[in-house]
Design a protein around this nucleic acid. Structure first.
Lengths: 292, 292
DNA sequence: GTTCCGCATGAATCGATAG
DNA sequence: ACTATCGATTCATGCGGAA
């Protein structure tokens, strides 16, 4: 058994057509948001965003297995004092296309962008929209359960002074009622709110996408040897994490710089693997990396 | 100056017509969600939710001042494995009605009720949709500032060190200004994610609305003597908090039991006020409670 | 080695200024 | 009038150099 990692340079609308239907277990992606990242992606106008995205989501619907899941990370920006409506219009349009809008997770960003304005506060959350082809899909909930002991330990350890102050003042006795129930359990299921920080400083490239985010969804919706797709791979966080977790992965990006960066990083990973190859356990798959 | 608290028994669609236009500074409400709380509100089908709500939001648009704000607490339920789309359809419909969709706050419920389903996790957040009539509206951001984080703490620490030095070197004139500037900086502006626990101790009302929620928005969007409206007052949390905070308030509910409950609670409050009446300060307004 | 401190840097947004 | 660009605002994070 071997694990493959394929990356493509080009437009997702075209490259996705090369993939066979019903072949992907999980799609995790963060497309360029409307009118943002102009320097790298050219920027899609908010008015035309739905029209731009629908051909891509149509292909995604084709390549996804009936048991698979599509996680779309997106957030609408403010235009003339109002939140843009293109994201919620996209949800409605994708449902017409055949997608089921199964759930909306919240990514609560611990370190949101600073700033002060007279009429609004800092935006510290993004949408993680879950779409499915079928009401029945694979979900491995146990994989993302949080050990209560570690959870409490990490929580306390990571908790900044601010958090302590804020939590104490605002939440107070919130947890008290059911604490006796939790004491008897090893693990707890998470909720649909993920509380993570954005990654500020990567070595070469700043990825706004923390590794924990794709990792969490890969654990939740795939098992080893399944296939993960990211049609807007950017710096490649999703597929690199997927590869590390023993999943096949496919990445597409139209920006040559990103493509080269991910290619180099994958080669480095491969080299590291070869150097430590003698330590392979028998049940670990070999890895094959294809650069197209 | 006196503070009035008026409650109405009846359908909001009718009772709202009794209120003069441009007379309300803040609307905070949590309407019955579709297909829920059937026993008390009769249950509004998800398909017809938008049609049911639009006549009410039309009246709300009429009675709200141009500088006022409408906060709508709502969350779509799951129907046949999918999230209902009536909330996002409502946003689009209200925009056509003339509302501006200014912001979407997230209420992150810390202690959401435990539960387990094969295909989803516990839902621990709700939408707090902010609508406005005009791009310019009243917002008193300083009223809801929170303790500052590590960065500022370090800065503050450093500054106090330098201030000490400056204190020692410059005896006498005008040192206080800089210090006081930074002493005021111990608080930061919050974000658009509210991290509150649900209220568990309310026995008579099924909807768990913590007092902190309306309190936060009342602080943020009104000043004393302004007017707060809740067209679905339920157990009256919003108007009771508003009254306590020295705001005029108007509550409407179609359920007699809720009406009676709030009426009794308000009479109790009034009685408490009268008993302690001799302690009134001169600048504190008297309270007038009208039960219609 | 640790711990501490300084510093750069974001999927941001508004308002003013410029073409 | 309408769009395009620019400066000001602000805080959690992680890195690198210093103590």
């Amino acid at each position: 058994m071997e694990i493959s990692t394929n990356i493509y340079l080009g437009d997702s609308r075209e490259k996705l057509k090369l993939l066979p239907e019903n072949s992907v277990d999980l799609i995790v992606t963060s497309p360029p948001y409307a009118d943002q990242r102009k320097s790298t992606y050219g920027g899609i106008c908010a008015d035309k965003y739905v029209d731009w995205f629908l051909p891509i989501s149509e292909q995604l619907l084709r390549v996804l297995k009936p048991t698979g899941t599509f996680i779309l990370n997106i957030k609408e920006k403010v235009v003339k004092g109002e939140r843009s409506t293109y994201v919620i219009e996209l949800i409605l349009a994708m449902r017409k296309q055949g997608w089921l809008w199964t759930e909306e997770f919240i990514w609560h960003k611990k370190n949101s962008y600073p700033g002060k304005w007279p009429n609004r506060f800092r935006d510290s959350w993004e949408r993680l929209l879950q779409f499915n082809k079928d009401k029945k899909f694979n979900m491995y909930q146990e994989e993302v359960m949080v050990p209560m002991g570690n959870w409490a330990k990490n929580r306390l350890k990571n908790l900044s002074e601010t958090d302590k102050i804020r939590d104490n003042s605002k939440v107070g006795s919130g947890f008290g009622k059911n604490i006796s129930n939790w004491m008897n359990r090893d693990k707890a299921y998470p909720t649909n709110v993920l509380h993570l920080a954005t990654e500020c400083n990567n070595k070469n490239h700043s990825a706004a996408f923390p590794e924990e985010l794709p990792e969490w969804f890969i654990k939740l919706f795939t098992k080893p040897n399944d296939t993960v797709l990211d049609p807007f791979m950017g710096s490649g966080t999703t597929i690199i994490v997927a590869s590390r977790m023993g999943r096949n992965s496919i990445g597409i990006d139209v920006v040559p710089e990103y493509y080269e960066m991910v290619k180099n990083q994958l080669n480095i990973s491969k080299q590291n693997l070869l150097e430590t190859g003698t330590n392979y356990e028998n049940d670990k798959p070999e890895r094959r990396i294809a650069i197209r």
